[in-house]
């Protein structure tokens, strides 16, 4: 399998194993799209069924949602810069930009937790109605993914400090960057499909 090891191009693509891992991760992301699609479908079907709980339009605040969106969008950008630095062979730049990315991710997570607590205080809890169940499960699954991503990237940073940039570590960083960008893709649809449309209807 290791027969063709390239000598040019990004480190993460040089070995067959590296290329296969990246390909496999794209297959995983395809499955993730479908996972979130089922949650979006549930949410769409249950839209408006708030029972005695508050209506989403009463609770959604444009400012809070925009702050969360910009935090995640910027973190996706800085994550892209981190990979750009990695491909220039700059391990320090990679670490710095990735840490900025994770801090922005933590900011997003904090804002989301604050938002959820606020909703619960207003009476919109997970068991309060079909609508709010689907809302918390959809937004919460995304939040869980962000949490996992932060833990995963933190472990990789420790590995980077110990082993430096190799074919293997750069492959792992490239994959975590795909994951992180993907979280922003999902968030764009949550931002549009839940928050913006929730404020229109």
């Amino acid at each position: 399998m290791s027969a063709e090891e390239r000598t040019t191009g990004p480190l993460e693509y040089r070995t067959e194993a590296g290329r296969m891992s990246i390909l496999g991760f794209w297959i995983f992301l395809g499955a993730e799209v479908v996972l979130f699609a089922t949650l979006f479908a549930t949410y769409a079907v249950l839209f408006g069924r708030t029972a005695d709980a508050p209506h989403p339009a009463e609770l959604f605040e444009p400012s809070m949602t925009l702050i969360m969106t910009f935090l995640l969008l910027t973190s996706s950008f800085t994550c892209g810069i981190a990979i750009h630095e990695m491909r220039r062979g700059n391990a320090k730049g990679l670490a710095t930009w990735l840490i900025i990315t994770l801090l922005l991710g933590l900011g997003f997570l904090g804002a989301e937790i604050y938002e959820f607590v606020h909703y619960v205080h207003e009476g919109a809890t997970l068991p309060s109605s079909a609508y709010w169940s689907s809302f918390f499960v959809l937004a919460g699954t995304h939040g869980l993914h962000v949490t996992l991503g932060i833990g995963w990237a933190t472990l990789l940073l420790i590995q980077l400090a110990r082993r430096g940039l190799t074919n293997v570590t750069s492959r792992k960083f490239f994959i975590v960057s795909l994951y992180w960008h993907f979280l922003d893709v999902v968030w764009i649809f949550i931002f549009t499909g839940i928050y913006l449309i929730g404020m229109v209807i």
Binding site: W26, L29, G30, E32, V33, V34, F36, A37, A41
Partner: peptide, 13 residues
């Protein structure tokens, strides 16, 4: 992968 993922998503929703 992405094309089929999004096609399935559209069909599901």
């Amino acid at each position: 992968m992405m094309f089929h993922g999004f096609a399935l998503a559209a069909i599901l929703v």
